[in-house]
């Protein structure tokens, strides 16, 4: 059975037309299902856990990347399938999973091409996409075997499912590949300096190093300092942390044009 989780912003009037088009397309494809609307009072986590009580559900998130990533977390190692209908034109997840935007994604959902995607963990808590932090004050130990010491690098991005670049939108072809492999039980550690725009001056991002690790310990060089790690572009976790690749996975509906 299909369960649709509508992002909270879709309640706004300006999205009425988009929602209506999606619903019409879903109905014509014969995959209409139960609608769940997110609000301040109902979190994605609660809602997904409630749906998971039903037998092998297909949960489709309609809305933003953040909500999609949040919905994925409680679904690890279940029989459920997760799908996504992105409504934002610059959706990173849509790009990675090969999904068109708005009602056009309904056809991909209907085709049910499924891939298994692993999770990463930070201090025992799952994450789906990537982590990002400032490396200047950090000490990194990979797989308990070697230390990575940064000399001129600003940022580290630990990737489970994301582009191998700091920017979320444009794709550059100078790197050997574009996206991480979230099915290999490894995490990609990308080190470099993200691009920036100061008024009308633009600094291009610089990718310096790429490592493949199963475990990464991150702590501050000074014991009285803490480093903030951004998890899935949303919440933050403070150091010291242990970041791990896991075998826990999730079945996700993907499109033909996927990058993973």
């Amino acid at each position: 059975m299909y369960f649709y989780i509508y992002d909270s912003f879709l309640k706004e009037k300006k999205y009425a037309k988009v929602v209506s088009k999606i619903e019409t397309r879903l109905a014509s494809l014969g995959i209409a299902g139960k609608k769940h609307q997110l609000s301040i009072l109902r979190s994605v986590d609660e809602m997904v856990k409630e749906i998971l009580k039903k037998e092998s559900p297909t949960i489709i998130v309609i809305g933003s990347d953040q909500t999609f990533c949040q919905a994925a977390l409680p679904m690890a190692n279940t029989n459920a399938v997760l799908g996504f209908i992105p409504t934002q034109p610059n959706s990173l997840m849509a790009n990675l999973l090969g999904l068109p935007v708005n009602e056009y994604a309904c056809d991909v959902v209907s085709a049910r091409r499924i891939e298994r995607i692993n999770f990463g963990k930070i201090n025992g808590q799952r994450f789906f996409s990537s982590l990002e932090f400032d490396v200047n004050k950090a000490e990194l130990i990979a797989d308990n075997k070697y230390q990575i010491i940064s000399k001129r690098i600003k940022t580290v991005k630990v990737i489970n499912l994301d582009l191998l670049q700091f920017q979320t939108t444009s794709l550059e072809t100078d790197w050997k590949r574009l996206a991480s492999n979230p099915k290999d039980e490894y995490l990609e550690v990308l080190m470099g300096t993200p691009g920036k725009i100061f008024w009308f001056l633009k600094r291009k991002e610089k990718k310096d190093s790429l490592f493949f690790v199963k475990k990464l310990k991150v702590k501050s060089k000074k014991s009285n300092q803490e480093i903030l790690i951004k998890v899935d572009r949303e919440k933050t976790v403070k150091t010291p942390v242990l970041i791990e690749a896991t075998k826990e996975d999730l079945r996700v509906i993907v499109g033909k044009e996927r990058l993973i």
Binding site: I148, I153, K176, A179, N181, L210, F212, E257
Partner: peptide, 30 residues
């Protein structure tokens, strides 16, 4: 299509130790 061609397994992954980085210890790659 481009992304699919560039899909990589860890065995043929390309580890890059860049100019801005120093690695100390036992480094093993596939």
């Amino acid at each position: 299509m481009l992304g699919r061609d560039l899909k990589l397994k860890p065995e043929d992954a390309e580890t890059i130790i860049g100019t801005g980085v120093k690695v100390e210890g036992t480094f093993t790659a596939f």
